[in-house]
Write a protein that binds this DNA or RNA. Structure first.
Lengths: 242, 242
DNA sequence: CGAGATTTTGAATTGGGTCAAGTTATGTGG
DNA sequence: CCACATAACTTGACCCAATTCAAAATCTCG
């Protein structure tokens, strides 16, 4: 299976980079990287508030975010909706649709973004040939499960300010992992969207921001955030009672 | 790849039954079923409150619940803990551990139970050979993601009684899928555990049960539940405002 | 520049949490 | 099998964090 293929230049700069998620690097041999081009991923561009997919759409592909960011949200019959995640460069979305072949949630661009479309049947075929890729895919899915369970913990047992602190610290880590500042960043989402994600009302989000600022933990100017006292913000989290 | 192997009697009655989850049936050819025996799954028994695995344990296997039921819960550093799910016969647990090779949560038997241990590296090897199994595994993982996101919706946007109604209706469906009564069942978990799962205090769970009973929706005798008015309970769910 | 959207802040309200007491179940040892 | 101890559950009264409603301030973008 491991035929040696000497020198190799990727046909598309994209195929490997997209599966090499920032937080979960994948190391492939040259031959495997070569095989990966069979995916022939297609890049697609989106403007702010464009839908990448909608609830009910037929599932064909996973999407690797090449640049920009998205939110995913589920819609309940009765109109209730909830943001289930914010995804940024290097992250994979669409995993929820594998289960039924229908997208269970919808993905909306939070800014101008580019995604790389990864046809799922090709991904499955390739991961049968490349065990490293197979394991990688499993880890990506499992990591999503762990992430979701972390949100369940947050929603089920934290108070409003703890949730926001956890949210900001998570963003901070993710920006840092991408080589951006861990302490200064621009929020791409509204208070309403943050609130939906964290299970609280937008007013509560706003108040929590103001309170953190008053405590000297952060500096807020609408969507521009600076974490002034990172340790202090972390301390917020550990101050639980129950 | 699809060599015909005529008549076949499963060596162990277990290998196929465990992957053929009740809610997600898998259809394999005889040869594939034969191959599946390479998993050589081992059955293990647990008494009530035994740990199947603990947080931090090295990951080696997934577990198919053969009989009985479990709860999974995550422990936060600060002592906070949250039940992330209740699993019953036919369901697979341990998916969270694939991500890091370390179990992120712990699984505790709610009653005397038997599980089937499925070594994950064998499962991966087999799913490279049996595309149907590969797809099945992906669907199982994806379904867990969808389930978790459903809980996020529940925790983030439902009121206490809606949560309990959703919980009871979910249990009802799962019992029905197993050929048991959809309207009469025994809870295997305490009020405390239900509360942890639903993000509310045990007193609130108890009050919600009492209120449903007062409304004539259910009949509660501690852990014995009868759903008297199923439609009424469903109506509870759709009575949202936001 | 101006209109609509987003955010902030205040005041009043309330759902669920907390604390506490009493009741009912469960399980163990005699 | 019963008695007792302990755990689990229910109910009440009070309280507080977060929601709701409202209005003003600020931002965004055509």
């Amino acid at each position: 299976m491991l035929l040696p293929v000497p020198t190799y230049q990727p046909k598309s700069a994209c195929s490997s980079c997209n599966l090499a998620e920032i937080c979960l690097p994948i190391n492939l041999s040259e031959f495997e990287t070569y095989k990966l081009d069979e995916l022939s991923p297609v890049k697609r561009s989106f403007s702010r508030s464009d839908y990448l997919y909608r609830s009910g759409d037929k599932f064909r592909s996973l999407f690797a975010i090449h640049s920009g960011s998205f939110k995913t949200q589920i819609l309940h019959e009765d109109g209730r909706e909830q943001v289930t995640g914010f995804q940024m460069t290097g992250e994979i979305i669409g995993l929820d649709a594998i289960s039924t072949d229908i997208h269970a949630c919808e993905a909306v661009a939070l800014e101008d973004s580019v995604v790389c479309e990864l046809p799922f049947n090709k991904l499955e075929a390739l991961s049968r040939e490349i065990p490293t890729l197979q394991r990688h895919l499993h880890k990506i899915m499992s990591r999503e499960i762990v992430r979701d369970q972390g949100i369940m913990l947050l929603l089920g047992s934290m108070r409003a300010e703890e949730r926001l602190a956890a949210f900001l610290l998570n963003l901070s880590q993710r920006f840092a992992a991408r080589g951006l500042s861990a302490t200064q960043f621009e929020l791409r989402m509204s208070r309403q969207e943050i609130g939906s994600y964290l299970g609280m009302k937008l007013e509560t989000v706003s108040r929590a921001f103001s309170h953190f600022q008053a405590q000297g933990l952060i500096s807020v100017k609408v969507r521009t955030i600076e974490i002034v006292n990172l340790a202090g913000l972390q301390a917020c989290l550990n101050s639980s009672r129950s």
